[in-house]
Design a protein around this nucleic acid. Structure first.
Lengths: 104, 104
DNA sequence: ACCTTGGATAACTTGACAGTTATATAACCG
DNA sequence: CGGTTATATAACTGTCAAGTTATCCAAGGT
């Protein structure tokens, strides 16, 4: 699972940037206060995790997001999502009950 | 965001175990091939991230999951979820079109 | 052909963290 | 009380990963 890949803030930021639109490495370097090799290294990790994909445009590599691997994370999260949403539901019921009490 | 906390497989495993039912540290040690101080250390990280909560029962500390902080991760994931689900939709449409073509 | 641009890779340094053993703390039990 | 159980913390070690600079490679432009 790619949790470890996403643990790095710079990599999440890269994904967020690429989510808007695809970008070349140089554009990412401008946005990410980080050296060019640093960006390339993160991109490599993301590429090997299948989270981004590079297209060659002359001397540039233009990267874009591939969201599919994130489904695994979403899957891990799913049972917990039920937990916190049911707790929210319970909270709502509780609050509603309080309001009802105020009426009496 | 607690991505870094979840990057550690042992910590995800602890959460998964606690999701079934609350457990004492000792029970977790039995399940997680890991030394007792190792487990305690992971529990500390999880506790400080608000992902687990300890209840005192005599000499034991019984831990249980607090799923709320995972909502932040879910929130980060949300826009990507749209991306991959819309891609799946597109795939379905594509497959449906293929089937339709076979009919002709 | 030469120089420049855009990225990737290499080599290195450093810091963080997971795991360990040993020890402290605290509550229960006889 | 004294011993035992349950957990936390301390101190240490080793590994790994992120960041850096320097270098390589490929493609473009003139």
């Amino acid at each position: 699972m790619s949790f470890a890949v996403l643990a790095e803030p710079a990599r999440r930021q890269i994904l967020d940037l690429l989510r808007e639109r695809e970008r070349s490495v140089g554009e990412l370097v401008d946005d990410l206060r980080l050296s060019q090799p640093g960006v390339s290294k993160h991109l490599r990790v993301l590429r090997e995790a299948g989270l981004v994909q590079a297209r060659v445009d002359a001397q540039r590599r233009v990267y874009r997001v591939r969201p599919e691997p994130l489904a695994a994370i979403d899957g891990w999260l799913a049972p917990y999502r039920q937990m916190w949403s049911s707790r929210l539901d319970a909270l709502e019921v509780h609050l509603a009950a309080d309001v009802a009490q105020e009426d009496s």
